[in-house]
Structures are given as C-alpha cells and as structure tokens.
Design a protein around this nucleic acid. Structure first.
Lengths: 232, 232
DNA sequence: GGCAGGCACTTCGTATACGATTTTCGTATA
DNA sequence: TATACGAAAATCGTATACGAAGTGCCTGCC
C-alpha cells in the first residue's frame, strides 16, 4: 500500500522533482526542445508548482533546460553551436581531471578500463552490430574510470555536468561519425599506456584533451562546419 | 548569470533578489558564514519568500551560498580547502579562456592591460600604500581584459564564477602573501609579451595557468599547507 | 548541581490563490 | 481572402497561509 512511497521518505518534494526531471532529460524521455509546463509536471508528481519551479531553476543552472521569463522552460539541446561549446569545455576540464586523477588510478582501474575498451573495440570492428548509443555509454564508462579519482570536487563536478549536457543534447557523436569509433578505441589504449607507465601530468592531460578534440573535429568535419574555430 | 550588472528594466522579483544577494556577497557586505534567513531577506526587499528561495537556489548552484534542508542558507566561504579547489579550477579554466581569447586581444586591449599593470606595479613597489583589496581588484581588471574575448561562453562563465567565488571567499590572497605582488606584476608583463608577439595557444595557456598556480603555491607555502597536492 | 525531558520559538517546505503576461483563436472588415 | 483587432485561454510570477522540522530554553528529577 505505501511501499513505493517509502523509499523517498527523507527526500524533499523539490529534490524529487529535480531528480525526476533530471533522469528524464539525460535518459532522453524528454526530448530536447520539449516544453516543460510547470503545472503539468506538478500534477504528474502530485506536488504543487513551487517545488517544481525550484527544480527547474537548478536544472537551468546546470544548462539542462532553458528558462524564459513569462514564457516557460524547455529542455535544452539540439543547437550544434552548444554542442561545440560543450565539447570544447569538456575537453579542457576532462583533460585536467584525468591528469589530476591519474596518480590515483591503480592496476585494477586500468584493468576495468581496458575491459570496457575491449567491448568498445569489438563493437567498432563489427559494423553490423555497431550501436552508437551503447558505444557512447561504454565511452562514458571508460572515461569515468579515468577521471573519477580527481581530488578536486569542483573540477569533477564540471566534468559531470559536461557529460550530462552531452547526453541531454543527444548528439551521441558516434551516430554522426561512426568511423571515429575505431580511432577512439586506439586512443583509449594509448591513454591507458600513458597512465600505466606513470607519464607526466602534462602528457596525460594533453592526450586526454586531444582525444576529445579529435572527436569534436570529426564531428565538425562531417557536418562541413567552419574549421576556423580555434580548437586548442 | 555571467555579468553581474544587468539592466533591470523588467526585472522579476526573483531576479531582484538574486542580484541583491549576489552583489552583497561579492562586495563583502555579507560576510562568509553569515546566515541568510529567507524571511528577513524577503522583508528587506519587500517581497515574499518565494522569489528569495529561487534566488538562493541559483546562488547555491554557483557556489556562493550553501543550503541545507530545513536548516537554511549561509554565505559560502572561509574554508581554505575550498579556496584551494577554486584556485586550482580557475587556473585551468582561466588559462584556457586566456589562450582562446588571445587571438582577439588587440593593441588597445594590450595597452589597457599594461596601464592597469602599471598601477599594480606602483602599488607593489610602495609597501606603505599597498592595499590588498585594491590590488586584487586591479588584478581582476587586468585578467578580465585578457580572457573576456573568449569565444566560448561556457568557459567564460566558468571563469566568471571562479572569480566570484574567490571574491566571496575574501581570501584576497595578497592579504596573506603581499610579497607575491611583485612577482605577479612581472608575470603579467611576461603574459602580455607572449600575446603581443603572437605566441602559440599552448604557450599562453601554460603561462596563464602557471601564473595562477604560483599565486596558489605562495599562499600554500605561507600557511604551511601540504605541498603534496598535485598542482598541474 | 547536573542532566533529561518537554514545551515554545524560529525557520524552512509546500499548498493554494490570485494577479500579470503571453499566446491563441475567432470574428469582423477592407 | 487576407489581415487586424479583441477576447479568452493558458501559463507564469508572487503573496499568503499553514504544517513540518529543527533549536534552544526552562523545569523537574536524580
């Protein structure tokens, strides 16, 4: 009778709304551009609009939704320019996080990452069963192992936000540029080798950054976008 | 969110509360650790608590206040560890922003920056009239000229947030390490020379990052903190 | 005199209500 | 038929109100 409601005993309504919306956005249930009507969301969750407003504000601060005065909220996304900005930002903060994290990445982490990369390789080498969404998920898993030990929580938070935005944008770069998958897997192995042999922070950071920049470049090339954008 | 000064023509109450609190926090009128009672703020601004709650949530997302369920909001700050994290993050994003911005920095910008730096030098060379707060303000002005042209709004926003946090933390590093002022001015000139002669992005980024890291190091050394923290 | 329990006060969390603003749709006119 | 005007609907913005959670003081007992 009250079983399902038990779990969220200590969660505030505002937190509930935030998590609900967040999950739906990153999972894609709420497509980019979708309108978020406060009253509707409130009714769906059986709460009033006030907590929902707060949740939307927080999501706005994270860049997952846009919000206009007297107009309403919509799920952010789509815009290729936003994608570019997000990828570029992520290349910088993720590179830094990976470098800062490297010294704490142990053999077991390396093994985990290598196992994930093996699955990615298998998928990349078999065009028949290549699934961009799944591949992107594995990609996220791989990189998470490498940057998750970053001792600076601010940087780590920026990395998480970047990934969330990318997921929300639903670019799933590998849908556009499947041929990039193979290179990506190879670069992953190179990154692991660097960490394994205790390379310098600078080397690791540069490699991680280049890896992401290369994915962005591949995307830009595929869309015929201006290559005049200064990529670090 | 990025520019604190907003033309508040049709500002909502929520926006008003946000700006009011934001200004008071970065200006130091609200000291770190100060308790923010929603009802009090609401009364002060002659609005209800609802817009104030929203404003506080936004400030929380920016790291300017901390907020605990059923407890309330307090102005963030004080914690030396937070200061360290913020400086390290800023070293990375500001370095990137400065590098991305460099190609758009023209002779007039250089001249402006050099003028600011001259005022800093004058202050640094005269220990009698050295004012840490004023010096920090000039420092902000100097760097703003160099990173403000960054074409990536996300990165620029991160830089602004970092500076805001630093201001709020009121560390004003130069209060702790006034002897750092001289080196700082010299490094500024070096940075300008790099930009002027059209140095590579990598060089500029590294110089800007090192510049900030050095300030952080000076602070850490002065407090006898662990130097084991991996500084990139 | 010190500690435990309970009562009162403060502050937050959310629901409801109403005014403000924007959009949409219907109608009348050129 | 197309366009301009206006009213109605939808949605947001904020005030007020009440219940919930936390904090501190005060009393009574050991």
């Amino acid at each position: 009778m009250s079983a399902p409601a038990r779990v969220a005993a200590t969660a505030s309504k505002s937190q509930l709304a935030y998590e609900w919306l967040h999950d739906r956005i990153v999972s894609g249930s709420l497509a980019p551009g979708a309108r978020l009507v406060l009253a509707q969301v409130a009714a769906e969750l059986d709460v009033s609009v006030v907590p929902v407003r707060e949740a939307v504000r927080r999501l706005e601060a994270e860049g997952l939704v846009t919000f206009e005065k007297n107009i309403g909220a919509t799920v952010a996304g789509i815009d290729p320019v936003e994608y570019l900005y997000t990828m570029q930002t992520l290349s910088i903060v993720e590179g830094a996080a990976t470098a800062l994290s490297a010294h704490a990445v142990g053999p077991s982490d390396i093994a985990t990452a290598r196992a994930v990369n093996a699955r990615m390789r298998a998928m990349a080498e078999d065009p028949q069963h290549f699934d961009p969404v799944q591949f992107t998920r594995l990609n996220h898993e791989f990189h998470s192992v490498l940057f998750e030990h970053c001792p600076n929580p601010h940087i780590l938070d920026l990395v998480h936000r970047g990934w969330n935005r990318l997921t929300a944008l639903r670019g799933s770069t590998f849908s556009f540029v499947p041929e990039r998958a193979g290179e990506s897997v190879a670069e992953h192995e190179g990154l692991l080798a660097l960490i394994e042999r205790g390379a310098s922070s600078e080397e690791i950071e540069l490699a991680a950054r280049r890896h992401r920049s290369a994915t962005l470049d591949a995307y830009l090339a595929s869309t015929g976008a201006h290559p005049n954008f200064p990529v670090l």
